[in-house]
């Protein structure tokens, strides 16, 4: 494993499978009698959030706390950042406070990369979403969820047919998923109106389509992305209604998908926009499971980046048993 997790391009298939296997093991352990593991006792994890994201922040916080790390939450709102402090100065301040790992969410693409490589700090950097670039732990939890449902919870995702639908242009979730899923052997198709696909997307390791209906019968996992209503102001699509008619997942569209297929969404969902309520509430939607898997996947990332190994977990269990 590398020292940082900045994007899914950093991960080999072996790395990714190690994280998923570790997450699985941690999931099993945390349902046992010892819900809180002592692994990262005395280590400090800083959640450095320059963007509002309660969901991702509490997921990382829960993950770090279940591994007994000390957690410092640093939200840009109400902090010195609003007074104009630079990312560099904020980072060096946190470093001086003894952060072993910095979990960063930032509106600027590449900010975690700069944090890790500009020589400002020495600890591990975990990207919790940067601009429209990457969100690697989201991709990991998505892969975990797909593997759990469609591959018996082991190995890679060879041959799995995944469709990602929506605002690909502005989506860090889509970028990270394309990278990780193809690393794990899945076949990815991106479905969006042409305005919401980036120029250059033809070089991505994914198929491109403008029609959701064409792909429903051959999809094992369908990932719906959040589409912001405001996008129509920049002429990406004429109206929310039209977007929803052409690209929204309705119950009738879902009925054309294979029996075993699942529906994912990184949340928060826009009911009635990209996903109908009856789909979101159906048993095929695994949106809540994604949230649960997010915690154990992030536990695995923290554990592995801060020096643990999967075999180390075995020792840990033995220790717990004899303690």
């Amino acid at each position: 494993m590398t020292r940082h997790l900045l994007s899914c391009e950093d991960l080999t298939a072996e790395d990714a499978i190690l994280i998923l296997d570790t997450a699985k093991r941690l999931g099993e352990l945390s349902t046992g009698p010892m819900r809180k593991l002592p692994t990262l006792r005395g280590r400090t994890v800083v959640n450095l959030f320059f963007e509002d994201s309660t969901r991702t922040r509490i997921s990382f916080e829960a993950a770090a706390k279940r591994l007994s790390a000390d957690v410092i939450n640093f939200a840009a709102k109400g902090s010195s950042v609003e007074k104009g402090e630079s990312l560099k100065d904020t980072a060096m301040t946190l470093e001086a406070m003894g952060a072993d790992a910095v979990v960063i969410r930032h509106p600027a693409s590449g900010a975690p990369y700069r944090l890790a490589n500009a020589g400002w700090i020495g600890g591990s950097v975990i990207n919790a979403g940067d601009g429209t670039h990457a969100h690697p732990t989201q991709a990991l939890l998505d892969a975990y969820t797909m593997r759990d449902h469609l591959r018996g919870g082991t190995g890679d995702l060879q041959g799995l047919r995944v469709c990602i639908v929506g605002d690909i242009l502005h989506s860090r979730v889509a970028r990270s998923n394309v990278s990780l899923l193809t690393t794990l052997g899945a076949d990815v198709t991106l479905v969006a109106p042409p305005t919401l696909l980036p120029i250059g997307v033809e070089e991505w390791p994914a198929k491109i389509s403008y029609s959701l209906d064409d792909h429903l019968p051959e999809t094992d996992a369908l990932m719906m992305l959040r589409v912001q209503n405001e996008r129509m102001n920049s002429a990406y699509f004429p109206s929310a209604r039209e977007y929803s008619r052409r690209y929204g997942l309705t119950a009738s569209r879902m009925s054309r998908m294979p029996e075993h297929s699942i529906v994912l969404h990184p949340g928060p969902i826009n009911r009635g926009m990209e996903i109908a309520s009856e789909v979101a509430d159906s048993p095929r939607a695994v949106i809540i499971e994604q949230v649960r898997n997010g915690v154990i996947t992030r536990m695995a990332v923290l554990y592995l980046l801060l020096g643990g190994s999967e075999s180390g977990l075995g020792d840990l269990v033995d220790e717990e048993a004899t303690a």
Binding site: S109, G110, D130, G131, R175, P198, E203, W204
Partner: peptide, 18 residues
């Protein structure tokens, strides 16, 4: 716009300058 709009900008998630 942040960089040339093309394959690299699509990957880096930086707004393109076509």
């Amino acid at each position: 716009a942040q960089m040339h709009e093309g394959v690299v900008s699509s990957r880096l998630g930086l707004t393109g300058w076509p």
